[in-house]
Design a protein around this nucleic acid. Structure first.
Lengths: 252, 252
DNA sequence: ATCTATTCCGTACGGCGTACGTGAAAGTTA
DNA sequence: TAACTTTCACGTACGCCGTACGGAATAGAT
């Protein structure tokens, strides 16, 4: 059989629909889809994605659990709507003049989004819901790398590299945050408590470089890593590489 | 109270322990922790992380569900063991001569690992279990960027950029794979089925760049994106940026 | 032969997403 | 106004999940 159009598309693009098929009879809904999605985002931001259960969300909204299903087909679709809503609500600043500044802005904006909503990178891997928020974001990103000599495919790949890098930094930061929340101690305290045991367990194996580098990181950051330093260093290298390619596509 | 040493550490480093505290009484275990972890990896590779339930894994191993808890404290810890086991089992080739080749090898190796075990990036964000597999990998990665003029922090950040990039590509590929598995149609078929509806829903909004770039990508890849092209392009740019920094740390 | 430490695992509990069906409410029509 | 139709609200229930608990089985020590 021919595949049916994806039903979640109509929900993602619900705001563009001038008139749904005019069903004016029957009881009115007490909330809107946006109310539900915004509340879900709030819960996920506050308590994490696992704590976002249909029952909890319904309680938060003051409705019965099953009433949610009159707004949203299911939890999977709700997550897709949440992701697009986050993109839709996030302001996209005007693209600055220089290429380096534009590339940095693309990456920092995406990092900011992923950092504000740490569940976002987890949700985005689940399904690629093409909604207005993601579409506007992508168009905005492309406008930052248009007209600089890259072909269409290279524009897409450039944006993909920047987004992937920004999401990766956000994920690495989120991993530290979750570890601290789960264990109840800061990463520095964890290391203090576990370093002796770890040294005992590692006995026999040699990690000269890891030891040296880890010690330096610990001194500098009071932690095993510093996402903001990673962001700055990595972003500078990536931008250097892209700019070099734009200026001299044939080298080296 | 002083935080207790993390109990999962002893499990992660179980192979280095010469002798556990000699509990020689009582019934023998019919399996090893490695058996359990390897079977869990097999299930997760085959059916995905959600399908890896304690009951399913126990059935696969021919034991009762609750017997698993004599090998592993719980599912969370099992996931951490799986991640480290994947790293531990993956061969780490000798570092080649040139810097560019070493950087590429670091990224491609990590991409390969994440690609073979698509649940890995999901698991790694859950907790930072420092086991022998990850430690060996990190030491190996650092050996690829040692002695080239980077300081300790820059070495760590360089490795982090490469790993994050590789993981990001693997995640983007995994998103496409999951969408295809969930919908049952290839991405090309999805677009064919949804393009008309999507065009209708997007009416009123203009996406000139997205449209142009998306069409070019569709022509070139028969899909909206091609992870291997993203990998090649992005890796080349990142390596360019790192090499440029190594050679001229002061230039922009 | 008895004791004791350990593994094995059946049962059960609370929580999850959600299918289903009934009842309530709102607009249309007679 | 009364009856009808359509839609929403949501209580109940089902099959999953991770895992706490406790009794039965087993193997080395005594």
């Amino acid at each position: 059989m021919a595949p049916q159009p994806d039903p979640v598309l109509r929900l993602l693009w619900r705001h563009g629909l001038d008139e749904p098929p005019k069903p004016r009879r029957g009881r009115r809904q007490s909330l809107t889809v946006d109310d539900v999605v915004d509340a879900a985002i709030k819960v996920a931001d506050r308590d994490g994605l696992d704590a976002l259960t249909m029952r909890q969300l319904a309680t938060e909204l003051g409705i019965g659990a099953m009433s949610l299903y009159t707004y949203v087909p299911g939890r999977k679709e709700l997550l897709a709507l949440m992701a697009d809503q986050v993109f839709r609500r996030h302001p996209l600043p005007a693209m600055p003049g220089g290429l380096r500044a534009r590339l940095a802005l693309i990456a920092r904006t995406h990092y900011g989004i992923c950092h504000e909503h740490p569940w976002l990178t987890d949700v985005m891997v689940l399904q690629n819901g093409i909604g207005p928020g993601l579409s506007d974001l992508y168009e905005w990103q492309l406008s930052g790398v248009d007209g600089i000599g890259l072909d269409d495919l290279e524009m897409d790949q450039t944006v993909a590299v920047l987004m992937g890098f920004a999401a990766g930094i956000a994920r690495s930061q989120e991993r530290m945050r979750r570890a601290e929340r789960a264990s109840g101690v800061s990463e520095a305290e964890w290391w203090e408590a576990n370093a002796p045991e770890l040294g005992r367990l590692m006995a026999g194996r040699e990690y000269p470089l890891s030891g040296r580098v880890g010690a330096a990181a610990g001194m500098a950051y009071q932690a095993s890593a510093d996402p903001s330093a990673e962001l700055e260093f990595g972003l500078a290298r990536i931008i250097d590489g892209i700019v070099a390619y734009v200026e001299h596509p044939d080298r080296p």
